[in-house]
Design a protein around this nucleic acid. Structure first.
Length: 431
RNA sequence: GGGGAGGUAUCCAAGAGGUCAAAGGAUGCUGACUGUAAAUCAGACGUGCGCCGCACUUCGUAGGUUCGACUCCUACCCUCCCCA
């Protein structure tokens, strides 16, 4: 019988593990594992921002998968470690965050994780959300050096990749000590929550093993860990960085529409892998989706499923539907059929201007509206653009460069949709 | 401190008294093609005007010479190079 690690491995989500037999230790159960078999695992989230990126999302999903396999997940927000700064994967010393910022960030992440995992107290393997500030800020420096520092040799710490890679460029004592704090976290959770497992991204592996070592030395008990891979797209680019824009999980940082679009824009070469990584669909379901996708790749069937699944998970179905409708309008749909809510969604995604309805009485020239909306910088340019056939009103090409818009042209809610070229949209509302 | 070169449109870069809104590239924009891709071909590209035309503004800044200045003169500002 295969366990949780096999599940991850089959989906391409296992990069490394601390022990060979981990798979047997964590069998997969329906919903809830019997108490004697229930295992607890934690993942730490660094509060460097008030939200998480889709890079962190892999770890959140890891916790979710863990919970779905009947075990208990703990999401640990680093309110304490965030004050120090994790050197893992960083090439430079980081600016310290203020305590206020860290607290604000912790709250943002807390809110997000609260939606993504099941914290229902009736569920025996309910998730926990903890903040290491609760214990890390209480320990005194001298105690820390005696109780934690004594168990780590400097050569051991220097050998860790997170430190080693920084020896040339410099690393402060503060960041150097980071792994001790994370080790302390693990021990704390091990003792207080019976948490035997920790996982994270591959760059966390060094910190994870430090914790296991610490638990073995101080408690003479065995803890375990594994790492999920860093996800790259087919071009070898880290996911969630489209043209240097980070894709966040919170709506206030990345709108639902942009989030949805990010997944829709997945390359064909990545669709199958991403379905394995970011959804809970079974292998058979994914194979079917891919088979269907390949019959008409231009339909983006696979991307649509991916975008729907992921957006539903993060933002909920109703918001996903709005984003979907907005996408539909912007990519070939008929705007005359669109509802007011769709335009409201669009208004925050594309250049949007409100104008006075009175202007339409005499009829308003398209070329004038082009300037008001910022489609073109001058009327002359607008007229040339129309001559070249690049201006569209309600997805219909404007042919007459002196064409006037009247109140009869308005769509639901007084909206009017313009387009320049193939995909630059502009929205006006006449009120 | 001494000597030299130069500042032109989004960027690079021609122009050396009138035919200059200013060659040629590149980027960006648009059209065709296409799967919300790349490549390719084509077009417009200072501003205004119901636009095969006319007017206005622009070649570092401010003055001047001239019928006429991106081009000549003066001063100033800035950049780069060489020598000390």
């Amino acid at each position: 019988m295969s366990g949780f690690l096999t599940l991850l491995k089959n989906r391409g989500l296992l990069a490394s593990q601390t022990h060979e037999h981990l798979d047997e230790l964590v069998p997969i159960f329906e919903q809830v594992a019997p108490p004697e078999h229930m295992k607890t695992a934690y993942v730490g989230f660094d509060p460097t921002a008030d939200s998480l990126t889709i890079g962190n999302f892999i770890q959140v999903l890891g916790l979710k998968r863990w919970q779905m396999a009947g075990h208990r997940p703990i999401a640990l927000v680093g309110g304490g470690t965030g004050l120090i700064g994790d050197p893992s994967g960083k090439t430079q010393e980081r600016q310290l965050l203020t305590k206020e910022t860290v607290e604000k960030n912790v709250e943002g992440i807390r809110e997000l994780l609260g939606r993504l995992l099941d914290f229902d107290e009736k569920r025996p393997n309910r998730a926990y959300l903890l903040n290491n500030a609760d214990w890390l800020t209480k320990i005194t420096f001298v105690d820390f050096l005696r109780d934690v520092g004594k168990y780590f040799t400097v050569p051991y710490m220097l050998a860790k990749e997170s430190v080693k890679s920084r020896l040339e460029t410099g690393i402060s004592f503060t960041e150097f000590s980071y792994m001790l704090l994370q080790a302390y976290d693990f021990k704390y959770l091990f003792e207080n929550y019976n948490c035997e497992f920790q996982f994270g991204a591959t760059d966390q592996f060094g910190n994870i093993t430090a914790g296991i070592e610490f638990i073995r030395k101080t408690l003479e008990k065995q803890a375990y860990g594994f790492a999920q891979p860093l996800i790259l797209d087919a071009n070898g680019v880290k996911i969630g960085k489209s043209q240097s824009i980070t894709i966040w999980l919170s709506e206030h940082k990345t709108t639902v529409y942009k989030f949805y679009q990010y997944w829709i824009n997945t390359q064909d070469a990545d669709v199958e892998r991403f379905l394995f990584y970011f959804t809970f669909l079974s292998e058979n379901e994914i194979k079917e989706i891919i088979a269907k996708h390949q019959q008409n790749p231009e339909q983006r069937y696979g991307q649509k499923i991916l975008a729907e699944e992921v957006t539903d998970m993060v933002h909920g179905k109703s918001k996903r539907t709005l984003a979907e409708n907005a996408s539909h309008i912007l990519f070939g749909g008929d705007p005359t059929q669109a509802k007011v809510e769709t335009f409201q969604t669009l208004a925050s995604e594309i250049p949007f201007v409100q104008m006075d309805k009175q202007l339409l009485h005499e009829g308003l020239k398209v070329s004038d509206i082009c300037v008001s909306l910022g489609i073109t910088t001058s009327k002359g340019e607008a007229q040339r653009a129309i001559e070249q056939g690049s201006i569209y009103l309600k997805n219909q090409r404007v042919i007459d460069k002196f064409m006037k818009v009247t109140a009869n042209d308005l769509l639901e809610g007084g909206y009017l949709l313009f387009r320049k070229g193939t995909k630059q949209y502009y929205l006006a509302q006449f009120i």
